[in-house]
Write a protein that binds this DNA or RNA. Structure first.
Lengths: 207, 207
DNA sequence: TTTAAATCGTGATTTTTTTCTTTATTTGTT
DNA sequence: AACAAATAAAGAAAAAAATCACGATTTAAA
């Protein structure tokens, strides 16, 4: 399963995965830890330690087998387990995510979008329909969806979160709004904090 | 300055900041470390340690002064220092970011967008104009812009990065594409890896 | 005034993460 | 066949981060 992988490691694993996908496309069969390390600006023993977590052995003087490693990462991170989700908020960000086909290859399957703007209802985005938010509880139940991706404007974030929590079986909220949501303890929230991200970027690299 | 703040700490600081902004709006003047800790599901001594880094003293039995703390975080994270940026790629994600007014209060000022689609040229988004990508080098120089926010489709990411690096003075790339960019060492890249983020969410909380 | 509860501050401890060092293996070259 | 170079593996050491624990302080209530 995908347990016991620390956050930092899984973050690096996705970066390795991206590089491996590139090597695959280029038809290269082996890759060494220093190659990867250099590309990401990290220590090569770090890379090997991470691979060891995957129980993936390399070969001295040659490196690791690209395809094996890639498969191994996909298995460890659970890319094969499909998780269905709804996007709540069909603004630009919601639409961008709905069109982001990559999600599918990583196990995230977006089924539909929700909004309260009557003009947006029934529009199709990348084969996914936009419904009125009031349809969410029913649809979540019928389709057994537990993940909501919240992309509404900040000022409505708490209110919408409250609504979907109390009226449906949503258990996981991937929060793209800058609001820090107040939720009961059985609801898991993951904050995709773009501000935090930028600040880290800024703090880390500017002087 | 914003130096010496570890990534994890600055990430938490932005979350504290969000909560503090909420308290300010509600007219509440004090906040305690257990209150914040509970909201974020972390340890309260962690919160106090972070505040100590800001040289911000609290008061026993009362807590911290909301406004002071908020100002202190803003100062530490450099929200007052305006950093100009261009968005490269005027798709949904680029437009979403262009409309994300919050950036401004955190010191990120988006001046314009760039794309190669003739249909998009000269459109105004949130008072920012979309230019043809070929105009970027000249404008970057004239406006002294060093940050590019890359929101083009994955397959063009490297090519566009190469172009802006060799033809302009862009030094920092905030990379929203899933590609791991190959760049010279004087260019700093920050990967906003939504896949990684989702995987962390998924690994952390599902079982 | 005393007591109890809440909270800060901080040093100690533990855990986690990263880096360093050494050894062993493989491959290509002389 | 011997040697050199590249690389993995694994343990040791160091650094960083999180948690624990407890004394000190403040406030409110008894």
């Amino acid at each position: 399963m995908s347990k016991n992988i620390p956050e930092k490691v899984s973050n690096r694993l996705t970066l390795y995965h991206s590089i491996l996908a590139e090597y695959m496309e280029a038809g290269i069969e082996s890759i060494s830890s220093p190659q990867i390390a250099q590309r990401l600006g990290i220590d090569d023993s770090q890379v090997r330690k991470d691979f060891k977590l995957l129980n993936n052995a390399g070969k001295c003087r040659v490196g690791y087998h690209v395809k094996e490693l890639k498969d191994s990462i996909e298995k460890t991170l659970g890319f094969a387990t499909v998780k269905d989700a709804f996007i709540v908020g069909a603004g630009h960000l919601g639409l961008a995510l709905a069109k982001y086909d990559n999600f599918n290859s990583y196990g995230l399957n977006i089924l539909a979008l929700f909004d309260n703007d009557p003009h947006k209802i029934d529009i199709q985005v990348n084969n996914k329909q936009i419904f009125h938010i009031s349809k969410l509880p029913n649809l979540a139940q019928r389709l057994n969806v537990e993940i909501a991706i919240l992309t509404v404007p900040r000022q409505f974030a708490q209110q919408v979160a409250d609504y979907i929590i109390q009226s449906s079986q949503i258990k996981y909220i991937w929060n793209f709004t800058p609001a820090v949501l107040k939720v009961p303890s059985h609801i898991k929230v993951w904050n995709e904090n773009l501000i935090a991200s930028f600040v880290q970027f800024a703090c880390k690299d500017f002087e």
